Simulated assay, not measured.
Amino acid sequence: MSNSPSRPETDENARLKRIIRAAEEAFKRFGFRAVTMELVAREASVAKATLYSHFENKDALYLAVCARMARLLRCAVERALAQPETPLDARLAQSVIAKHRMVFALVRGSAHAAELFSAKDAMAGDIFAALDEAILKALADAMAADAALAPSAARLARALYLGGAELASRSASAAEMENELAAFAAVHLAGARTLAGKESQI
């Protein structure tokens, strides 16, 4: 039996993805304020009517870009954690590094990063709050599998994730960020293990 009935939907999904990717690139190149729906339609090689059939306005389009970014960030963290041949502490460090490496690639490399972050906070706070919750849970779940870290897994995950975010925001380059986060994670987790060992001797 022919698969042709499903092709229009597949084409439509591909068009939608192309629009969102074009919008992402436009926001990075020109900043939130300078981007127009006309510009995105041109960059995505679609008619304005097609663009408006998917997105009511630029705000809705920006939310779609943010939702895509959140999915990519979550996947980067989950991939780093899902490496059974890698020691847990290295996986935890790499998961936080992977998240911020992608932020550098997707946003911080833009000359309009401050404006994009401001628009994100104003419009897509819920999307990224949900992302933070999901990542914190993934980190805590990974730590809970380790006897030394398990009793304080949720607290340790918050300290690693939120402390790492502060360090990443102050880093001038992706390389500096990776070095800072690797060192921070190593000290943080080693300290947690040392304290756990002392507590078990009491």
Rank of each mutant, 00 (worst) to 15 (best):
S171P: 01
A174C: 04
E78P: 04
A113N: 09
E85P: 06
E56P: 00
A190I: 02
R158P: 02
F117C: 02
M177R: 01
E178G: 06
I202Y: 11
P5I: 01
V107G: 01
A23F: 01
G164S: 12
L61E: 12
L106E: 15
C75E: 12
G125R: 10
S2P: 03
E9S: 06
A140G: 00
R91D: 06
E25P: 06
A82H: 05
A138M: 02
P87I: 01
L181M: 04
R18I: 04
V35M: 11
T36E: 07
H188Y: 10
A190N: 12
A82P: 03
A129T: 08
Q94G: 13
D141H: 05
H100A: 05
L88N: 02
A140T: 00
L88M: 06
A14R: 00
Q94T: 07
T36N: 10
H100V: 03
K17A: 14
E133A: 14
A70F: 06
R170G: 04
A41Y: 09
V65I: 14
H100N: 13
A144V: 00
P8T: 10
P151D: 08
L106F: 08
M143R: 00
F32R: 03
E56K: 13
I135T: 08
A47G: 01
K137S: 06
F128E: 12
E115H: 06
A90P: 02
S6Y: 15
T86A: 03
V107A: 07
M37C: 11
D59M: 07
F30Y: 15
L16Q: 03
L116G: 05
A41T: 04
E25F: 11
M102T: 04
K48A: 07
A113W: 15
D141T: 07
G197S: 09
R101F: 01
M69F: 04
R79V: 00
A64W: 14
V65Q: 07
M102G: 02
E166V: 14
L73F: 05
K58C: 10
G31N: 14
R193H: 10
S95W: 06
L189S: 05
R74N: 08
A49D: 09
M69E: 13
S4R: 08
A23D: 01
T10N: 08
A144L: 01
A196D: 13
F32K: 03
N13P: 01
